[in-house]
């Protein structure tokens, strides 16, 4: 389970690999938080239930990351991991579970840069060997 930031001229890309889909989604959250601040310093002090649906796995990941971004912009909360169940539905995919993190504290979490949005450009969630890989590009 790992993530790495990708080179993109104006914005920031993220590539995540994991053995399972729930791990992949959780790791992607961590990778997104790493763009904003030091993700290792985010403690799981607060939990938030999430239930989301989308037509594809890639769109489901976009929904989760967009949800976390909204929580940060409005409530100042940074969620860097999640415990999720991901299932196929009649119309696509759904996830349910909890995101964990804490309210950002400027003293403990110096900000790097703000993410404006999670884009659809080169967005992908795909099988990679025995596990999964996701690619996401953020608008900075």
């Amino acid at each position: 389970m790992s993530y790495r930031l990708l080179e993109h001229t104006a914005d920031v890309g993220l590539e995540v690999t994991a053995a399972t889909l729930p791990e992949l989604f959780s790791e992607a959250l961590g990778g997104m938080v790493e763009v904003v601040t030091d993700a290792r310093k985010i403690r799981p002090l607060r939990e938030l239930s999430v239930e989301l649906e989308a037509e594809g796995l890639d769109l489901l990941l976009l929904e989760l990351l967009t949800e976390a971004l909204y929580r940060f912009d409005v409530y100042g909360e940074l969620f860097s991991r999640a415990r999720l169940e991901i299932a196929e539905t009649g119309e696509g995919w759904s996830l349910s579970g909890t995101m964990a993190g804490e309210e950002a504290d400027p003293a403990r979490h110096p900000m790097k840069v703000m993410i404006k949005a999670v884009t659809y450009h080169q967005l992908a969630v795909e099988r990679a060997g025995a596990g999964w890989r996701a690619t996401v590009i953020f608008d900075i």
Partner: peptide, 9 residues
């Protein structure tokens, strides 16, 4: 011009 998302910048 540079690489954007969708449209080029």
């Amino acid at each position: 011009i540079h690489w954007g998302y969708g449209f080029p910048i």
